[in-house]
Nucleic acid binder design. Structure first.
Lengths: 243, 243
DNA sequence: GGGGCGCATTGACCAACGTCAAATTTTGTT
DNA sequence: AACAAAATTTGACGTTGGTCAATGCGCCCC
């Protein structure tokens, strides 16, 4: 609910390194200038909201640094963490395209820089360069694919398997491998969020963590996780192998 | 697995009524002619496959009549019904856009007419008219929104509530209201598919149906459902109302 | 430094749901 | 129409995971 981001002029699309890994990489030199002209950069600290469910879209947002959590709440106030957005990811274009209010909250998980690009600028760029729209389309299709994979997992895996799977995904971005085969991981989210990501209660996650520790699969201390054998997590995902 | 669709020349994009309710409605007269030139219409009967997971995309598909089920299978062969596609819906463009193989199966649930538009034609149209890409983007964003809603439901609702919710959604398309407030519904899918749509086992769905009948909420006979009070289904969705 | 608040852990309990198996109905095919 | 195959229903049983509640921990703000 906090919204006290502060303006930050240190980020600029023209020189932004992340731009080359983002949807905006399809833009030409002139278009990047147009982008830079319609953009403002903001600094967020942990917990600050980028946009909220129900608000009208006033533009799109591009993550320059940090991690942004995309959440949706149901009628009873249960929060589900749907996606983590990383540098280079563009957020909030659904609201701009459809004119509907935002369907999700976007919240910085830690210190983050996020650029805001006005609706007017986005529409001008989409008119100017059709490849930008196709790029958004590819990105959205990938998100849809990801969401559908999650649906399949929710339908077929146990909570234990889903947590193991989630840890493997987080390993890709937050994990470090050491020489002896041990891996460590710094979780970007709370246990409650972990629970909402796999569709379980936070008490259940606590218990699964306890069982992971007694089974020697992963050891948790706060947000630090030590995983002796990454393969052991992979094994957890198969529901039950016959024989 | 069956794939014995038959060519059918009775459908033609130029005269197709569904086109005006589809993504292709953004096309101009010349573009519709181009579309019609790169298109072939096929008749499918129940169970026939439009495309399958793992196949390379050879174009996009537009549903003219009937219902097409979009399914995904996991490693163990569990099938999850992700989406029902109706006349006017366009399928399979992810594979065309990304060059990746199809991630889902598409299968006619009953007699259906589906048009196939070649990759070449689609790419020409996308080049020609940027609005087509934006239209695809809007559609994909809507699908993503839908999938995310399902994720929230999977995380927060009981199977009973999810089945009630699914029946309400199916009512919108397959339901009929009679004068006395009773509604009837002809299910387009089997109990197994119903189960996979809500992430439950088919035995569980059978039991929930039994409880709906003893509770006087809905009466099932084959694929016919009679619902005395639609509102009773709505009540089922709230997890537990305090007081 | 001292509340106060939210997060996390743990225990006890039990309802919901999955698994296995068998019986029954429906559907499709020859 | 008869048969085979698939879908559905039902029962019995065990496990998972949700609920409620109490306690401890960590962090932020005064």
């Amino acid at each position: 609910m906090v919204k006290s981001r502060s303006r930050d002029s240190n980020f600029d699309c023209v020189t932004c390194i992340m731009r080359h890994r983002s949807d905006w990489s399809v833009l030409g030199r002139d278009e990047v200038a147009l982008l830079a002209g319609g953009q403002s950069s903001y600094s967020y600290s942990a917990g600050e909201s980028v946009y909220s469910m129900g608000e009208a879209g006033v533009g799109v947002y591009c993550v320059c640094s940090g991690t942004v959590a995309i959440r949706r709440l149901d009628a009873e106030g249960n929060s589900v963490l749907l996606q983590l957005a990383y540098p280079g990811d563009t957020l909030g274009y659904e609201a701009v395209l459809t004119g509907e209010p935002h369907r999700c909250n976007a919240e910085a998980l830690g210190p983050a820089n996020v650029c805001h690009i006005t609706t007017k600028t986005v529409k001008a760029l989409l008119d100017n360069n059709p490849n930008l729209g196709l790029q958004f389309l590819r990105r959205t299709a990938a998100s849809l694919d990801d969401a559908q994979d999650k649906l399949v997992h929710h339908a077929t895996l146990s909570n234990r398997a889903k947590l193991a799977h989630l840890l493997l995904i987080l390993m890709d971005r937050y994990g470090r491998h050491t020489a002896d085969g041990t891996s460590t991981l710094h979780l970007p989210v709370s246990r409650r969020d972990l629970a909402s990501m796999i569709g379980a209660r936070h008490e259940t996650v606590s218990r699964i963590i306890g069982r992971f520790e007694t089974d020697g699969i992963a050891y948790f201390s706060g947000r630090s996780v030590r995983i002796p054998q990454v393969n052991a997590l992979v094994e957890e995902i198969r529901p039950q192998l016959v024989g």
